[in-house]
Structure formats: C-alpha cells, structure tokens
Write a protein that binds this DNA or RNA. Structure first.
Lengths: 168, 168
DNA sequence: ATCCCTGCAAAGGGTTTGCAGACGC
DNA sequence: GCGTCTGCAAACCCTTTGCAGGGAT
C-alpha cells in the first residue's frame, strides 16, 4: 500500500514540532525514514527498514536508522515491540488504536486485536500494587500447526475487535 | 530462603521423567542447576545463576547453564521472560500459579499479580482470530518516581490477587 | 562558524556454536 | 565403547559507540 499523503503531512508536522521542542535538527534522513515507515503497513525490524531504503537507493546508515527510530518512538509516532525474538519489531503508531498482538509460534504470523478489559486490568492492578501504570505489553502465543489457520487467513490490517469497545 | 526439600524431590522427579522420555542423560550438572534454581526465590538471569554456582565452587560452564535452562523451560519447571532488557529473566515455575508481572520503569522492581480476566481475553481472542492460544505474556509498565512507592514496599513473594480467582 | 548529525566500522553484551575431551549409558 | 554432554573460547547477532567529516542553524 502506498503512502497516505494526508497522514504523512500530519505526522511530519508532529515530528517537526517534536524536533523543534527538543532543539534537534531537521535532517533529510530523519524525514526519509519517517516517510519509509509510513509507507509500510506491517511490523518491521531495523534491518528490513534499512534494506528497503537501500533498495530505493537512499543512502542511510544503520546508526541513523536506530537513532531516528528512538526519536520517533519518543514522540509516539512509532511503537516498538519485543516479540521474544532477538531483534525489536516496530510499527507506525499514528492513527492506530492501542492494540495488542497474537503471534503464531508455528508460522510467525502476527495478528492484532483490541480488548478494553486490558485497560481495566491495568487500572486495577496499579491500584492494588500502589503503582501508576503507564502502559502494558500483552502478547498471546498461538499455534496453527502450519497451514490450517494462519496460512489461509488474510493479514489483519486493522486490529480485530474482540468485544465492543466500552471505553477508551 | 533455603531449598524446600519436598518441592525439590518433586521437581527432580519431574525432570528425571522428562530426561528419560527424551532419552537425555542425567548429568550431575543438570541437577545441580535445577537445585540452584529452586533454592532461589527471585527472578534471575543466566549470568547471576552462573555466578552463584561459581561462588559455591561448583564448576559449570555458561553453555551448560543455557542448555539446562532450555530443558527446564521445555518441561515447565522454569519460566522464561523477556522483560524488555537485553537479557532473559527466569524463575522457577513449579508450584507457582500462573501470574503476570508489573515492572517499575523507575526502580526496576518486579511485582507479580494474578487476574483471571486475562484467561478470558486469551480464550476469546483465540476464538475471534481462529487461533489456538497456548499462552500469554502480559507486562504492565509502572512508574514510582523513585522512593515513594517501590522502595517502601516489600517484595511480593507470592502473586497478589487483583480480584478473587474465579476459575483456573 | 558552531556543533549536532551522519556514515562507517569497531566495540559491546547476551546467546549460540564448534570442537576436543569426559562420562553417562 | 558409543554417543551425548561438558567446558572453553570463538563466533554470532543485534545494538551501541567513537570518531572524523558534513550539513543544519
């Protein structure tokens, strides 16, 4: 899927404001990386992002990709996940609802879902333990025994609703 | 806290059976590592386990520690977590209820809690996505702003109940 | 002109691997 | 005795770091 220009203008604006607030420079590399991320729809790791840009003959270094991803995570335009593999996975975050992931151990496919009850758990556990809970990471581990589930299923571009969203 | 002998006999039995079933050898190192793990109560990483054993003048290599931990995870005597740091964290699993973790980003303390609603989410999400869900990992990220929460709080040796356990 | 940011490559840290010798079976 | 397991160290992989040159301000 191609880059959504409206969305990109918005996130570019957000990034510009963030850079300005932090007195960081507006380098072409930073915006090129942002653009590359927002023209993707899947989860990706640093290497695949780096390779995509190389393939488009855009000269970037891995170090800059890492650096820029940190900035984008910091300003909530990108979210970072550790799905248990060694390398971190990233995805664009703007315009996407908070969601969680189910990963099939057999075929490695990643599904997304939303469930408002997680928010309740988060709130209640925080109260019981006397902690302010600022976020969570929920990963369900699935099994499709290759072929009879994941393979036939279209990739979820939007998180599936598990139950009607009650509150946000 | 010292090793609970009854528990250790049980887990040793389980491990023996597992080794036999898989036609693996009963080496002294494997049982020494199991014993060291069950005489601990905290979460630990490979290095600290290795160091403890070295300090007790038990000769083991890191390679064997890694190898044995894999086996113990495989037979459910140990659980492995990726709390986002670089190294994996482990904890003994036998006799402990399934529980999840809250990690304070400020002081790194780890709390444990149980919430049966996670089980319901797991089940329902699996149904909606057509996946058999075999497990989950939920991590809540807390913030205590150092000193006013975690510091004063005793470590949770048993998972706190967030609500009465309805079902298991 | 300043000095932050980039690219490159080397270093770093946790985990895995290869190999020779040890030992459970 | 056979074949797996161990210990050691090197290799590995992802990420971070150091440094010199380049470009944003």
């Amino acid at each position: 899927m191609a880059l959504n220009l409206d969305t990109f203008e918005t996130v570019k604006r957000i990034f510009l404001d963030y850079l300005e607030a932090k007195a960081l420079r507006r380098t072409p590399e930073r915006f090129a990386i942002l653009e590359e991320i927002y023209s993707r729809n899947d989860h990706f790791d640093v290497e695949s992002l780096y390779i995509s840009m190389k393939n488009k003959n855009y000269r970037v270094s891995r170090a800059t990709v890492y650096n820029t991803l940190d900035l984008l995570v910091e300003c909530d335009l990108v979210s970072k996940h550790q799905f248990g593999q060694s390398q971190a996975q990233y995805e664009k975050a703007y315009g996407y609802r908070q969601h969680d992931h189910l990963i099939c151990s057999d075929c490695q496919k990643v599904f997304e879902f939303c469930d408002p009850r997680i928010y309740n758990i988060q709130k209640m556990v925080g109260e019981v333990l006397g902690q302010r809970v600022v976020g969570h990471s929920l990963i369900l581990h699935g099994a499709c025994t290759k072929g009879d589930g994941c393979e036939n299923r279209p990739a979820q571009s939007q998180p599936a609703d598990v139950m009607p969203t009650l509150a946000e």
